[in-house]
Amino acid sequence: MAETLIPIYIMGKRYEVPEGLTIMKALEWAGYQLIRGCGCRGGFCGACATVYRVPGDYRLKVGLACQTPIVPDMYLTELPFFPANKALYDLDQVGDRVDTLLELYPEVARCLGCNTCTKVCPQKLKPIDYIAAALRGDFPRAADLSFDCIMCGLCAARCPGELVPYNVALFVRRYYSKLIRIKPQHLKDRVAEITGGQHDQALADIAAMDEEALKKIYVERDFEKL
């Protein structure tokens, strides 16, 4: 299969690479054995945040190197690390939600409402909205809006108020999940049964079963309906 080569500029240096590759595969095709800027290669880990421009357009574009196809003449760099502020806290010792938020991350009050974070998010989230929800104490909403965040660092890199939206969101989600949501009864019941030793006999019995007997009950077990 004949490959069509297109020019790209990796940190300003020109390479010709096959059309259709992702930025990450183009880096490797060019000869980079990556140490930083490469993690899961599947769009989950946020290791490969990349910024680029294309000629004739003043706007800065962003993407994950592992997910974003190359375009001709793009000039790009990965941002494999960003020095982000993270507050330390103990979820067993925290107080009221908004008070705690402002204590840990006072800079959230500096949000200018410029919406640059939204423009830069490769997950197409709206950090401005979840920060606003968090500030007004609507942690369930903020948790939901921020859930798909992969903590790549791009919003923090661009925020003129110097917020680190993803660390704020992580605190909010943990606070919400631990302290606002109830613990389900079926989970409490099962944990109590196990710690009370109620399943020990059944497990001891099956663990002692010979292989033929085990195979028989395995084949005969009933399935919950889909």
Partner: peptide
């Protein structure tokens, strides 16, 4: 099940039904 409880207590956001 103990591990699921541990993760919930650490603040992991499990999918839930409306009743929790």
């Amino acid at each position: 099940p103990l591990v699921v409880e541990w993760l919930k207590d650490l603040g992991a956001m499990f999918d839930t039904h409306p009743n929790g």
